[in-house]
């Protein structure tokens, strides 16, 4: 039973990641290869909040979300001046820079050794969140909250304006909307929410190291969104479930882990290629990538 709970917690974490990435990819048509950097920053900021500042869980979540958003603002402004491939490249560049910093700034991040023994966070200083059941509740609540916020966001005037950026930037400009500021909002909001996923991951696993937030992870998050589908709420959720459950299914079939790891990557890769060819909006998405 614990095993199933563990998978549900992972699914919840990935739902947060994919839903926030969808705000960029599906809603605003900004393909970012730097999402793992914000995921990592969120995790490291939350460790700072939990271990150094001794905050309880809700302030820690807010702290890491806000700090990551501020960092992303630094990145958003220069990269959003660029378009298409150049934007992808700029985000790739930032992803690699942040990874290099996390990996090499040993006096602060402990580099490749990682940070272990992250204490279990407490709720208002009363209730300690440790053990799988409380994390199940916490992650489900957070995932549900993120889904709800994004549901509201997509159906708000702001969400419609973002869809406008995605579908036809020029006509949005011509009716006097500030496209750049909309994009910057989308970028910072997305990274703020992705930091919540990082915070959850750090406190659940109680150990983080930079390799969990490398370029492969960024590609993985993007792949999850694209497989599930872009532009609506259910697409990213399906994507998160797909990428988390598939390796477990392969394990149930009885493939050894050494083959299974490669095989599931091959399945992801083939799924992406086939989806891009025949169904560019993903399994359940509404927006075909442009």
């Amino acid at each position: 039973m614990d095993y199933i709970f563990h998978i549900i917690i992972l699914i919840n974490i990935y739902i947060i990641l994919t839903t926030s990435t969808n705000l960029l990819v599906g809603m605003t048509n900004l393909l970012s290869l730097g999402q793992a950097a914000f995921y990592g920053l969120g995790a490291y900021f939350s460790v700072l909040a939990l271990m150094v500042l001794h905050l309880t869980i809700i302030p820690a979540l807010l702290f890491s979300a806000i700090c990551t958003s501020l960092m992303s603002l630094l990145i958003a402004y220069p990269s959003l001046r660029l378009k298409g491939d150049y934007f992808v490249l700029a985000t790739l560049g930032f992803q690699l820079i942040i990874y290099t910093i996390l990996y090499n700034w040993i006096s602060v991040t402990k580099g490749p050794f990682g940070i272990s023994g992250i204490p279990s966070p407490s709720l208002f200083g009363l209730l300690y969140i440790s053990g799988i059941y409380s994390f199940l509740v916490l992650s489900s609540v957070l995932a549900a909250m993120v889904i709800y916020i994004f549901y509201k966001l997509i159906h708000s005037p702001f969400g419609r304006a973002l869809k406008g950026v995605r579908d036809d930037e020029l006509s949005l400009l011509s009716i006097g909307r500030n496209v750049t500021s909309l994009k910057i909002w989308a970028f910072t909001l997305s990274s703020g929410f992705i930091a919540i996923g990082g915070c959850l991951y750090a406190s659940y696993v109680a150990y983080i190291d930079p390799t969990s937030f490398n370029l492969d992870e960024a590609i993985f998050i993007l792949a999850a969104v694209l497989i599930g589908g872009t532009g609506n709420i259910k697409g990213p959720i399906i994507g998160a479930v797909f990428v988390v459950v598939l390796p477990e299914l392969l394990r149930l079939v009885g493939l050894p882990d050494s083959i299974g790891a490669n095989l599931r990557q091959i399945i992801y890769g083939l799924t992406i290629i086939l989806l891009m060819r025949f169904r560019p909006q993903g399994i359940a998405g509404e927006y075909a990538l442009k």
Binding site: L31, D85, L222, N262, Q265, I266, G269, M276, P280
Partner: peptide, 22 residues
Amino acid sequence: SLNIMLISSIGIMIVVTNIISL
């Protein structure tokens, strides 16, 4: 679109790398 080409390219990369690694 070019973004679709880019994503497909990532797909090829994942597939071939993992076949070699397998």
